[in-house]
Design a protein around this nucleic acid. Sequence first.
DNA 1: CTCGGCTGTAGCTGGATGCC
DNA 2: GGCATCCAGCTACAGCCGAG
Length: 260
Amino acid sequence: MASTSDNALVPRSDLSRFIQRVRVLQHGPSEDAYVRLPDGTVELVVRVLPGTCDVHALGPREHVQRKSATEVPPETLGLQFKPGGAYPFFGLPMSELAHRSLSIDTLWGRADGERLRASLADAPSVQARLRTLEAALVDRLHRDDVFEPAAAYLVRRGIRLVTEASEIPRVSDLARTLGVSERNLRRAFDDVLGMGPKAFARLVRFRRAIQASESTFRGTRPDWGAIATGVGYYDQAHLIADFRAVTGTTPTAWLRARAA
DNA sequence: CTCGGCTGTAGCTGGATGCC
DNA sequence: GGCATCCAGCTACAGCCGAG
């Protein structure tokens, strides 16, 4: 399994509050060209194909996503939104994009989709394609029919509370802190993020475990029990169960594959 | 139309235990 | 010690519905 190496590009400043990172997806020699850990984000992917460009949005997921080298041609551009950051650009609840990949024609309508794809196909470089894509996003943001409801603000606050807390809060506590009912909080998360607050919190915890293991793994065996309890799991058994559910493999096997 | 309460159920958590 | 499985109890989710 090859990790996807990032060739970092900087998003323009007026989009930086929505976009987490921009990268050129490059793959190594192994079968899995693209391995995406779930993190509750949407990624807009631009693939350069003979004579045209393909643009589609990869919705938020709760499991690892893999793509083969043939699915990721050279110079594929990935624009990753922040959690909840994609919501203002697509005009549909993110729950409809969850676990799915939708073409830009489906999301923005055929005419707008075709126009964008044609502009991207004309762009001479990766940088030029990025600027074209960003211009289209800014244009979308300023349209009258695209608005950001109060739910987006609520969810952004919720996301911050979850990601910044050393101990991940319960949904009921989160709702109380934000001053809304649990029911309303779940609806808002579904619309803006494409998953419930619990599912998002679970991914945050899982990613903390990944980070902790990778920072301690340096050829030696990580102490999974310590990592598990350190990031909020009850014990290593539950960390392993989560690993299996998200990646389909055990923590040790995952690290071995990453190291290889 | 938005919000919140109620309810059935799926899935998660806490805990124990067994295998290698 | 690391990994896996099981189970009871609990929590979060989703659908429904009524109130404002």
